[in-house]
């Protein structure tokens, strides 16, 4: 759902840029506070994998294809919506600047949709579903579906404000396609969370108690 240049008027793109920059600053603060040296390479490899998998468009019928966005995945693996903002912002900058995927002026909107909204919806939907259905992988899958669907609706509202899409038929089209694409997001996220948390059980913050950063207590 990378919005290209020309889909949103310049003046409006500035507003999304400001919102994006606020969250990027918060994500950098998250990195300073929460990101241990141990996790730095894991964040980097997650970004590389998200870049690669975003290039893999899978058919979802209706003459449409879609790919993993990865906001829910990043947020769930690293235990913070700001991890999604951190990783997705950099990946989106690289995609737009080097590969022309997503606009430059609309990059702020794309960061807001896929990084911020995707990350926050993915993270809080995960903790919500996890508290009800207990299974972390099914919870991750459901959360990922919402983390694809809700940003798509947000994008259609932004494009309505921009005068590019009509409101109702825009939301119907975006909602329909991303409800289908969300299934891809759900399956890949659930499998990836399962594999990564099995390879690195200490990353699983959802089942084990939070390990104290001082290493003294595991309350």
């Amino acid at each position: 759902m990378h919005i290209p240049d020309g889909f949103i008027p310049l003046l409006q793109t500035i507003i999304y840029w400001i919102i994006a920059l606020v969250f990027i600053a918060l994500a950098l603060r998250w990195a300073r506070k929460e990101l241990s040296e141990e996790k730095v390479p894991i964040v980097a490899v997650l970004a590389a994998a998200i870049f690669a998998i975003q290039a893999f468009n899978l058919p979802v019928g209706m003459g449409t294809s879609g790919h993993l966005v990865g906001g829910a995945l990043a947020a769930i693996i690293l235990g913070s919506p700001y991890a999604a903002v951190f990783i997705l912002s950099i990946v989106l900058i690289i995609q737009a600047v080097i590969f022309g995927d997503g606009g430059i002026t609309t990059m702020g909107a794309n960061i807001v949709n896929m990084g911020v909204i995707g990350g926050f919806v993915g993270f809080y939907a995960f903790t919500g579903f996890k508290s009800v259905i207990k299974n972390p992988y099914i919870s991750a899958g459901i959360a990922a579906w919402f983390a694809c669907f809700i940003p798509a609706l947000a994008a259609s509202v932004e494009l309505w404000i921009a005068g590019t899409f009509p409101l109702v038929s825009g939301m119907v089209a975006m909602g329909t396609y991303h409800a289908a694409i969300g299934v891809i997001e759900a399956i890949i996220t659930a499998v990836a969370v399962y594999l990564i948390w099995h390879a690195r059980p200490e990353l699983d913050w959802s089942t084990t108690e939070q390990v104290d950063l001082g290493g003294v207590t595991a309350a």
Partner: peptide, 8 residues
Amino acid sequence: ASADPDGL
């Protein structure tokens, strides 16, 4: 990869 257009 599918050559079909993405959702947007």
